[in-house]
């Protein structure tokens, strides 16, 4: 599904070039739940921008569903983002002036054709993240965890190939964070492909596989023997301590 081959990203400003990614290669298969881990400055945000087609690499190949993203222009990348990628950001990025339902429907505006069942799809999306009751609320009346779940519902509405989450729990208290992680777990069980970018080992250990990034190269890439179970953590506060 995702195939990165020797991805390089060099930032140039005023004659100084700063290499951020120095040849990153890995594959993510459909249905995988992968965490990309690394300290700040490791290039993980840049990697996630490239994975999310928000940015283009300066070298290498990035195949998403067998199409080389490096060759696409800005409009085509926009279309890919709309159809294949569901973003979940650390800061949620919900429009305060719109209701939960409208927020979830937002990506549909940029679809090639506005679906006739847009509202129904948004309702289903919200049901999927357990927010069926909150459809006509405005984001600022929701808790942080609920807001992030709205963002996940928004990411789901176009039935994306991958869900790309950038520090999805970074702005949440530990309980809300685990609630969000449990949503990811459920989506993973339904067969969705999820890539979570984080600096937090506790968060990463919920995934089935951890890719370690350091100074722009992959230093480690291995399966998690026993992924953490957010459901159990919600039951047992002891297990949550690690998250602090």
């Amino acid at each position: 599904m995702i195939e990165l081959e020797n991805i390089e990203k060099i930032y140039r400003s005023e004659g100084v070039s700063t290499p951020v990614l120095k040849g990153v290669s890995f594959r993510v298969e459909a249905g995988e739940y992968v965490a990309v881990m690394g300290p700040s400055g490791s290039g993980k945000t840049t990697l996630m921008n490239i994975l999310g087609c928000l940015d283009t690499p300066t070298g290498g190949r990035y195949l998403l569903d067998e199409i080389d993203m490096v060759k696409l222009d800005d409009d085509e990348l926009s279309r890919v983002r709309n159809r294949k990628i569901g973003f979940v950001f650390q800061l949620f990025y919900l429009l305060e002036r719109a209701t939960t339902l409208k927020n979830v429907m937002l990506p549909l505006i940029y679809a090639e054709e506005y679906p006739a069942d847009a509202e129904q799809r948004a309702r289903n999306s919200l049901l999927e993240v357990g927010l069926g009751e909150r459809m006509n609320y405005h984001p600022n009346t929701l808790s942080g965890g609920e807001q992030q779940r709205v963002a996940i519902a928004r990411a789901l509405i176009n039935d994306p190939a991958i869900i790309l989450a950038d520090e999805p729990t970074g702005n949440l208290d530990s309980r809300s964070g685990i609630e969000v992680l449990s949503v990811f777990k459920r989506l993973h069980r339904q067969g969705r492909t999820i890539v979570v970018v984080t600096h937090d080992r506790f968060v990463a250990e919920h995934a089935g596989r951890i890719i370690q990034l350091k100074d722009g190269v992959v230093t480690e890439d291995k399966a998690v023997a026993e992924p953490r179970d957010p459901e159990a953590e919600l039951q047992d506060p002891e297990r949550r301590e690690v998250a602090q």
Binding site: L54, R81, N82, I85
Partner: peptide
């Protein structure tokens, strides 16, 4: 930025 990430073109 959000709208761009959701698929809005320039």
């Amino acid at each position: 930025g959000l709208r761009r990430s959701l698929g809005a073109t320039r």
